[in-house]
């Protein structure tokens, strides 16, 4: 039997693996996609202590190598269920079943989709969830950004320097994001605000040609655009575990700073935990705490 199974090989999961291995526990990390998590999309990390600049790819690769060098095993399988039998936990993947003493859920989050017909087909053909990844393709073109939080505002600001015209579409009449960013955007002559509106239709011929937005009064407006950047938040990837551990109304696993869930021996780390600040440094911090708590828990068995 393994000591600890960690679900997710992002910054939280891999940091947990480092701490657990250094405490001489046997560790298996399960990853459904690729190691590194969403940080690999960031070209330049400027707010992680010590390194003034490091790319997300390099950060993830070095973290992965560090965990592997300490003896953590990483397997690319998707965890679909956890069965709690008290002192014994079983983690079910799409290929195997692993028995262990403690589990750390570090599955992170994924982009929230618009839910408009044709969205999936048009990803990479006009629809994007990452302005810093795909913005460069829209030089001198028209783009729309959907959302009202910091990500949407920052995306619109970033794109306003690249694209000819930026529409910022928001379902309310004011933004949740920082006022300083909003003010910067208002000074941009090529940014148009489309308030009280939601995207209701995507028109495409092979690629996105225009979108339709519907306002509060039900009035429909068509906007010709080359790109649509969706920045309406993220959703925690906790669907497979929500029937076992307590989650809040948005799906975030409920646990305090000690990363303990309401089920003994099951811990949570990273962006899928209820918290105020979701940053790289808080994800790695969670990893350290969750692993330490898991080691402590195993000591009591």
């Amino acid at each position: 039997m393994l000591d600890i199974v960690i679900i997710g090989a992002g910054p939280a999961g891999l940091t947990a693996a480092i701490y657990a291995k250094r405490a001489e526990k046997s560790v298996l990390v399960l990853e459904a996609m690729n190691y590194g998590g969403q940080i690999i999309n960031t070209p330049d990390i400027e707010n992680y202590p010590v390194n003034a600049h490091i790319s997300g790819f390099e950060f993830a690769s070095r973290l992965y190598e560090q965990a592997k060098a300490l003896g953590a095993e990483v397997v690319f399988e998707k965890a679909v269920d956890i069965i709690d039998e008290g002192n014994l936990k079983k983690v079910v993947t799409n290929a195997n079943l692993y028995e262990c003493k403690a589990v750390i859920i570090a599955t992170g989050s994924e982009n929230r989709k618009l839910g408009v017909e044709g969205e999936d087909v048009l990803v990479g053909r006009g629809i994007s969830y990452c302005a810093t990844c795909d913005g460069a393709f829209y030089r001198k073109k028209t783009v729309c950004v959907v959302g009202g939080g910091n990500t949407a505002l920052e995306d619109a600001l970033y794109l306003s320097d690249i694209a000819e015209k930026v529409y910022l579409i928001h379902r309310r009449d004011s933004f949740r994001g920082e006022e300083t960013t909003t003010n910067k955007l208002k000074k941009k002559s090529n940014v148009e605000f489309v308030y009280n509106s939601v995207v209701t239709k995507l028109n495409a011929e092979k690629r996105l040609k225009s979108i339709e937005v519907t306002d509060k009064e039900g009035k429909v407006r068509e906007i010709e655009t080359n790109g649509l950047f969706v920045a309406i938040g993220r959703i925690p990837e906790t669907q497979n575990f929500a029937k076992l551990v307590k989650v809040d109304e948005s799906g975030y696993v409920i646990a305090g700073e000690n990363c303990r869930t309401d089920v003994k021996g099951i811990f949570v780390a990273g962006d899928n935990r209820v918290k105020d600040v979701r940053q790289l440094v808080t994800a790695t911090a969670d990893g350290a705490v969750a692993a330490t708590e898991a080691v402590k828990y195993i000591g009591t068995l």
């Binding site: 690319f76 990803v123 990844c133």
Partner: peptide, 26 residues
Amino acid sequence: EVFSIPCLIAFKGGKEVARSVGLKPK
């Protein structure tokens, strides 16, 4: 019309026959 990378385009007989956008597992 590559508007997002990574993007894999499969060519057969000089023509695009399929495309895959985004990072995916092996």
